[in-house]
Computed example of a mutant assay.
Amino acid sequence: MNKRKIPVYTLTGFLGSGKTTILLNMLEKVKQQGLEPGIILNEIGSMNVEGHFFQKNRVIELLDGCICCSIKEDLKEGLNKIKKEATVDLLFIEGTGIANPKEIIDVITDIPFIDSFEIYSIISVIDSSCFLEYKSIFSSSKEIRSLLDEQLENGTLIIVNKMDLVDDKIREKIRKKIDEQIKHKVVKVQTSMGKVDPELLLKKRVDSITISARKGELGTLTKHQHRNHSIQVIKINNIPAINLKLFEKWLQTVSAQIVRGKGVLYASNKGRRMFHFQFSSKQVLFSELESESDIEPCIILIGYAGSGENIESSFWKEVVHRNMPV
């Protein structure tokens, strides 16, 4: 029987966009359903001035930095605490206004956590009253524009908030800007004061697919797949020793479908030694593990929805089967 994974909802959005209001809305709904939520709150400063909103909840506060960079290890520590306590039914992570959701996803899908947590949605919140200003090359920095792009492009649900503060002309400009940038299919909701149907907020919007070779039937796959959305997390288990050169070549062939990759492998062309690999920006880095690890070989790939079918078949054909003795 598979261990239950804790659903994770990540809220992202620039400073003042309304993330906390939306989070409180979600918390009220899950409590009505009799569920126990866990919350990880991140603030750049040394104090969370909104902490009083969450006094009756299981809260882990991460202060003095951003969980996607300077205090990334604190996020891992917080996840470990929740994993060990096993007292929450689902987890909400609210990043700072300058958090890059891609880095948060990277931590949750890492080997120590992928079998305990499952990303359900990345909710990106936009402040309509400032959006066009932030996106303008004349009134904002390149760093801010790049961050907004990351927050938008990694969102599986986009909340265009504070619509009551802009007129119809501005609303149309915002809609066009978002549509120009977001090419993949993603739900967009226009609202004011963070008022969004909680059922819409809590809907699962990230695919999960686990691929394993059945014992004694290499290449015959069992899998569990949810409906297609913009992001898909693929985990490949039960991997035999493989040729790292073949594997690197294969990664390049599927790089258009993959945002990020990582995992642990036995290398058939390196004396069956164990290696950790990282793949991003079409570059792969292998590092040999100095001592034997109790981690089972696995590959974790973060890609676009619908890519799982092609990836699963090509991996076994181009990497595993080619590596097997004739």
Rank of each mutant, 00 (worst) to 15 (best):
L91S: 02
K235D: 06
R58W: 02
S230W: 02
C298T: 08
A213W: 07
I178M: 14
S230Y: 02
G308Y: 15
K177D: 15
I300Y: 06
S314K: 13
G34A: 09
S124L: 13
E180T: 11
F131T: 05
I6G: 02
K173E: 15
R227T: 05
G155C: 09
N2Q: 10
L165Q: 08
R145A: 11
E118L: 13
Q55A: 09
M324Y: 03
V259I: 11
V166K: 06
F117C: 03
K215P: 08
K83H: 07
V49A: 02
L246V: 01
D149W: 06
D179C: 08
I122Q: 03
C68I: 00
D127F: 09
I104L: 06
K245G: 13
L152F: 07
Y9K: 04
K76S: 06
A267L: 07
V264G: 04
K29G: 00
A86D: 08
K56W: 01
L201W: 11
K270P: 01
R205T: 03
E73H: 00
R175E: 14
H52S: 08
G261A: 13
K223P: 01
D167H: 06
L202P: 08
L148M: 12
S255W: 07
F277N: 04
G306T: 13
Q252L: 15
H52W: 05
D64P: 00
N2S: 12
K282F: 01
N310I: 14
S212K: 15
K183V: 15
N80Y: 07
V259D: 10
G97Y: 02
K317G: 04
N2G: 10
I295G: 10
I122F: 02
E248T: 11
S128F: 15
E296L: 09
T21P: 08
P325N: 14
G216P: 15
S70R: 00
I178C: 06
G38C: 09
L200T: 15
S293L: 01
E153M: 14
G271T: 07
K56F: 03
L23T: 02
H52L: 08
V49F: 07
D167Q: 09
Q232I: 13
L165V: 12
Q190K: 12
Q181R: 15
C130G: 03
F92T: 06
N323I: 01
E296G: 03
T109F: 07
I119L: 15
Q225A: 10
R175D: 13
E36G: 05
L147V: 12
K215L: 14
E288M: 12
L148A: 04
